[in-house]
Write a protein that binds this DNA or RNA. Structure first.
Lengths: 336, 336
DNA sequence: GGAGATTACGTTAACGCTAACGTTATTAAC
DNA sequence: GTTAATAACGTTAGCGTTAACGTAATCTCC
């Protein structure tokens, strides 16, 4: 004989109707006269009735929770993707259970496992590389799943993103066209971020295909933060010799690198070219605009969420959606 | 007669024990022999058993979800606070339901209302200003609540943060000591961010108390992003006259402002002083270090989460915890 | 070797809600 | 004025789990 909190039953008693009528009134479904519905809602409010989502989800065998897994919050990129998605989901009445993996596949797997106990309406993962268990569990649970930020022809369920290898190639190609001949790359240790690795592959391919092939020097070791890592990368490169153009993993690192160049007395773009990635807000206020690639982050979130909502409602959607990037040309003294 | 998925019952049948024994085995509580427990776990894994948190939460009348409400993701500050909290909560087995209010109290209230239907173990709100309903509902639901980033003597439940007015005062006092006489402030429209408003009050007080009182010119209109807003603020100020020191709402805006100063041919710190807030990573790579205040963001998250966990377990903790900030002196040509 | 304590289970009844179906009023149709 | 259709409710059972209590077996100690 527990019972103390006010539930649908207490409201029903107070309103002298059945529990089912209260349930209907509160959910706003058909089968209750407008007069009675208003009366019930009034009483529910008076009694401070708070619906119990746990009970509801148990009864209907699903929830209005969506799980979202990101590598990290310490990067505006994911914040913007997230903002795009959440706007759409909030409007549809879903709440977001969010996790950050800190780039650890094991951590992602553990989280998915825990998440599944909540019977979420959908799951969103970042990237297309997961432990085999993850895809298998999501598939066998039949949960609509969106992979975002990267694309593959064979997603777990559906995916929306950009082609990172092609993006890298486009940036590399542009640099080749401008006549750069001793390129370098500053990023994270290979293997930590598969998207970054793909971009580097694209850059390399562009230089291999160029009029004459140029090897790329690769630098970059883990640092406390991206700005420092970019600066440290430049320091590392300059110990040996001066490249004529440096590609960075992203704009954060590019900015750190720029500052380091300044310390070393190198002018941009006269002495050294700088290429970033993402076209963050930061780059719009720089005195010297750098070359970068604008990624459709917000749009990605919106399109992804929309497709996923369609999947939830059983509407068929494209399994793979690749969004275009836009090359932003920085200031340069070369070419054309 | 629904039933199809595998629950505790199916596992029990397969293992030829009662449901209760399975429940005990899975939760790892006493009352099952080690041999039987191992056998049950083996069978559960074989049947792909996935616990149902909805049913569990319904039965025990609470969940292992914590709700976290932030103003926005578009600010490293909140990302770091969040990281500090989540580390602690993940370890304790809680999942985070996260919301961003975009600085709208109404949005926060709607979210709290929805969240309460999940019977969360705890709720974390940013700041101490909420619609009256919010505190009232959380209190009457008896849910441990943490207010973070700002402090008050009368929190909803407990709070951990910094004293923004005092922080502003400290920064202002420092500038007064250096002899600055025509200060200006660039921020968001008053009323949007109460913490920023409090800091501005502190800065004003410092200048009012100075050897001789100096009025502060206030600029700042909404922009697409913080960097642009900082730059626009400088443009706006310079249309009239040149202040000798400019306080910015935060480091992001300070950086935008610095870039704008460069455009206008103003050197820092010779022609104009720049003061930011937060000591973001960004400021560590600048060619000219600016004055700013280091806020203990990660620590705030950790301490907050720890206190909240104590509250959840019924351990009494201080209601209000104020953490200290550290003034970071930038480069300057004045004073001392 | 028997009273008491302990261990290892099983039974029963909730937790709050909703799907499915059943029942009673009300209206419409001829 | 009877029948058929519809709207507006009520009953019942079940969602998967756990708390509380019950029972049987084993152990402990003098």
């Amino acid at each position: 004989m527990r019972r103390s909190s006010v539930g649908i039953r207490e409201v029903a008693e107070a309103a002298k109707v059945s529990m089912m009528t209260v349930s209907r009134a509160i959910r706003g479904v058909e089968g209750v006269s407008e007069k009675k519905r208003a009366e019930i809602l009034r009483i529910a409010k008076k009694l401070n009735y708070v619906p119990n989502s746990n009970a509801r989800s148990l009864a209907v065998e699903n929830s209005n929770l969506v799980g979202i897994s990101l590598p990290t919050f310490a990067n505006d990129v994911f914040a913007e993707i997230l903002a795009g998605m959440r706007g759409t989901f909030e409007g549809a009445g879903y709440a977001s259970v969010i996790d950050t993996t800190e780039y650890s596949p094991e951590s992602e797997q553990r989280w998915v496992e825990r998440l599944l106990t909540w019977r979420p309406a959908a799951v969103i993962l970042t990237g297309i590389d997961h432990l085999p268990d993850v895809g298998q569990k999501l598939r066998s649970a039949g949960i609509p799943t969106l992979e975002i930020w990267d694309v593959t022809a064979d997603p777990i369920d559906i995916c929306v993103g950009i082609d990172h290898e092609a993006a890298g190639y486009e940036l590399g190609r542009y640099a080749v066209t401008l006549g750069y001949q001793s390129p370098a790359y500053v990023g994270a240790p290979i293997g930590r971020d598969r998207r970054a690795d793909a971009r580097l592959r694209g850059i390399k391919r562009a230089f291999d295909e160029g009029p004459c092939s140029h090897p790329i020097r690769v630098a970059g070791r883990p640092e406390r933060h991206a700005f420092g890592a970019g600066a440290a990368g430049i320091d590392e490169l300059l110990q040996e010799s001066r490249p004529d153009v440096v590609f960075f993993l992203n704009d954060h690192m590019a900015f750190g690198g720029m500052m380091a160049c300044g310390r070393h007395g190198l002018r941009i773009p006269q002495d050294i070219g700088v290429v970033g990635f993402n076209a963050l807000d930061l780059t719009t206020v720089l005195p010297v605009p750098i070359t970068t690639a604008k990624t459709p982050r917000r749009q990605m979130g919106v399109v992804g969420a929309r497709n996923l909502l369609a999947r939830i409602h059983g509407v068929a959607t494209e399994r793979t959606t690749t969004l275009p990037i836009t090359l932003i040309a920085g200031e340069t003294t070369r070419g054309e």
